[in-house]
């Protein structure tokens, strides 16, 4: 338990630092901003207690808000995403048996399974974030276009990170 505990703390810190110091500072065309920090929620153990999952999501979101001057915005989106996580896992992987403390991984879920799982969660997160930020349905198609673009870019970054760290552990 303790090794996993520390791994998650380090993952939390690294993802927040990368998000705040690198990704939030890159201005890609002025309107895209990938949110790699949600990877922390995606990789939490499958059997984590649901209230702990929500609490961690809330703390993570508030931390990002604290550095981005957007108090409450990322917290709301990340909590909603965490709320959707157990249901998403049940929906896609009800036929799989997970060991205790097992984290979702490319090996177990296969690429297609992991892709669907990440897509649903990242899309929920981005959708909530942009809709709360814009807070109107005018230019909805344009907002949706930004949401899709940002979702795909976030996923690309998550997959690249997964491949890099998988290679190291093998």
């Amino acid at each position: 338990m303790s090794r996993q505990f520390f791994r998650n703390i380090i993952r939390f810190l690294l993802l927040v630092l990368v998000q705040v110091l690198v990704l939030n500072e890159i201005k890609l065309g002025g309107y895209i901003n990938p949110y790699i920090y949600v990877m922390f929620i995606i990789l939490l153990p499958v059997d984590i207690s649901k209230s702990l999952l929500l609490t961690l999501a809330f703390i993570l979101g508030l931390t990002i808000d604290f550095f981005g001057n957007t108090l409450g915005l990322h917290a709301a989106a990340t909590v909603l995403m965490a709320y959707a996580r157990p249901g998403t896992i049940n929906l896609f992987f009800s036929n799989l048996e997970f060991n205790s403390n097992e984290e979702p991984s490319l090996q177990r879920l296969k690429f297609s399974g992991f892709f669907r799982y990440v897509f649903v969660l990242v899309f929920i997160h981005n959708f909530t974030l942009y809709m709360l930020e814009v807070f109107s349905f005018t230019d909805f198609l344009y907002t949706l276009y930004r949401i899709m673009l940002n979702t795909l870019l976030t996923m690309l970054l998550i997959f690249i990170t997964m491949f890099i760290f998988n290679k190291k552990s093998n």
């Binding site: 649901k50 209230s51 929500l54 609490t55 999501a57 809330f58 979101g61 508030l62 808000d65 957007t70 108090l71 409450g72 915005l73 917290a75 709301a76 909590v79 909603l80 709320y83 157990p86 709360l132 807070f135």
Partner: peptide, 22 residues
């Protein structure tokens, strides 16, 4: 229903932060 209740409570806290800053 603790999962749902906690979810609603956390969302209310986040959204009230957010709308106050609007």
């Amino acid at each position: 229903y603790h999962f749902f209740i906690l979810f609603v409570v956390l969302e209310i806290i986040s959204l009230s932060f957010l709308f106050n800053s609007y």
